[in-house]
Design a protein around this nucleic acid. Structure first.
Length: 198
DNA sequence: GTCGGGATCAACT
DNA sequence: GTTGATCCCGACG
């Protein structure tokens, strides 16, 4: 097993803060867009009521039960495509939701995809990040460690930053878990919003 | 087959 | 602070 695969084959709440500073890179016909990850959330499996995998594997969530290193994409609120990196061991669901990042390559294409917004907002929030990268649902399940076009990239040199921790955004269950991690004080991190109770 | 709702965002008051 | 957009998915039967 590759070093990166081993790195990802740990519980999502351990992997999540370690992914800050890594990058996602998507190559399309148009260009390359690379995003440096600044905000993440950990999701578990059948013991995490806020996880899509809580009720066991379904056609959508089954990739979360697979081996670490794959990408789990889902449509949110009918509009957005959100991006997770699958973690943990095969057979147990866990993944890290990539909530925000900084565009470090292909900023012109990212601007075209996002319209007229300030640069720090290009990939701020999971829906915006998916749009800036140009991700589409059929790519869900791809292996980020062997795919040439959609890849998880280790930082070239260790960037120095502090990590903040807090509750996950937009969920209504298991809200006490401090499973959101972000690059302290970074302009690309999304605003916190509590989940709406039924 | 039908139906309710969501790990969101932007535009509005 | 509130609301509309818009599409799968998952639950139920």
């Amino acid at each position: 097993m590759s070093e990166t695969r081993t790195f990802l084959s740990r519980p999502s709440h351990e992997v999540a803060p370690d992914l800050l500073g890594w990058s996602l890179r998507h190559v399309t016909d148009e260009d390359v867009v690379m995003v440096e990850i600044t905000e993440v959330e950990a999701y578990g499996g059948q013991s995490d009521p806020a996880s899509h995998a809580y009720r066991g594997p379904t056609p959508r969530s089954s990739v979360m039960f697979g081996p670490a290193g794959r990408v789990y994409l889902y449509r949110s609120y009918g509009i957005h495509v959100c991006c997770n990196v699958v973690t943990g061991t095969e057979g147990e669901a866990s993944a890290v939701l990539i909530r925000a990042g900084r565009v470090t390559e292909g900023i012109d294409l990212a601007r075209r995809r996002r319209g007229d917004v300030a640069d720090p907002a290009l990939a701020r929030g999971p829906g915006n990040l998916g749009r800036a990268l140009g991700l589409t649902l059929p790519q869900s399940g791809r292996d980020l460690l062997t795919s040439a076009s959609l890849a998880l990239v280790r930082p070239a040199h260790s960037p120095a930053f502090d990590v903040s921790t807090g509750p996950r955004v937009g969920i209504t269950r298991a809200t006490q878990l401090p499973w959101r991690f972000w690059w302290s004080g970074d302009a690309t991190v999304s605003a916190y919003r509590a989940g709406v109770m039924a």
